[in-house]
Amino acid sequence: MLAQAPQWIASGLTLGAIYALIALGFVMIYAVTDVINLAQGEFVMLGALLAITFKRQGWPMLAAALAAVALTVAVGAAVQLLALRPARQASVLTLIIITIGVSIALRGAALLLWGTDPYPLAPFSVGAFDLGGAVVKRQSLWIAGTLIAAAVALWAFLNHTMLGKGLRACAINPLAARLMGVRPGRMATLSFALGAGLAAVAGVVIAPDTYATYDMGFGLGLKGFIAAIIGGLTNPAGAVAGGLLLGVLEAVGGGIKSAYKDAVAFVILLLVLLARRFGPFAAGGAGGGL
């Protein structure tokens, strides 16, 4: 069983990188707007299916990917403007239920547009190589590279641009941010656009590994969310670490008994939730910035 450990870690890190990208989106949205966006997985699905659709029109892969991400960013902003802004006075729970509605509606729309067929996408680079006893697909390198690039870009954006600093200011204290001339409403829309974009990127790079279907987002979204919770919900670095950790734990759990792979993530979720309530980090609570 130990001989398989390198393989588990390699495939776990690949899947974990996807979770990390989705979790980063969760964190962006939650930190700025206090909304747990359960439609995050649907943005992953949109990214994947749109990229495949553009690719089928004969577009080059990069153009198809960029167009898919751009369109999903627009959908994310639209969701914030049309579904969440009108209810911004509502309770947190109402907002969660609204995002569930958004997720179901997006899934339904995808079903009407693409049907139930699974859509394949060719890997960006074909082939695999051996790394310390584990077979690593070249596509995995694309996934890892994408995560690194996205994380660095996000870090630079949040720390070195006026707009990014505005986002962080809203996450720390919306009222103070408003007094400094930052518009929290616009920042909320921006955070949804960013969150959707990160999810769409995850969708594009994972599509070659798993066929893309209208309902692929549901499971991925929840896993990304669990990763974000492990990382503390408002901490981008924590979200990345949480995603990678969850990916590896799932791969190990699935390797021991594949049937219970999905349960592993949710058992971890419950443990983390309860640890946050009772454990050493219990006092941490909400608040704090990106």
Partner: peptide, 24 residues
């Protein structure tokens, strides 16, 4: 767009309904 997508197509209306009720 596929003519008969199959699956649970009522999803979309269901999601919209949930959304609209909670907003308005």
């Amino acid at each position: 767009i596929p003519e008969r997508p199959g699956g649970e197509q009522e999803l979309i209306a269901f999601g919209l309904l949930l959304m609209l009720i909670m907003i308005y």
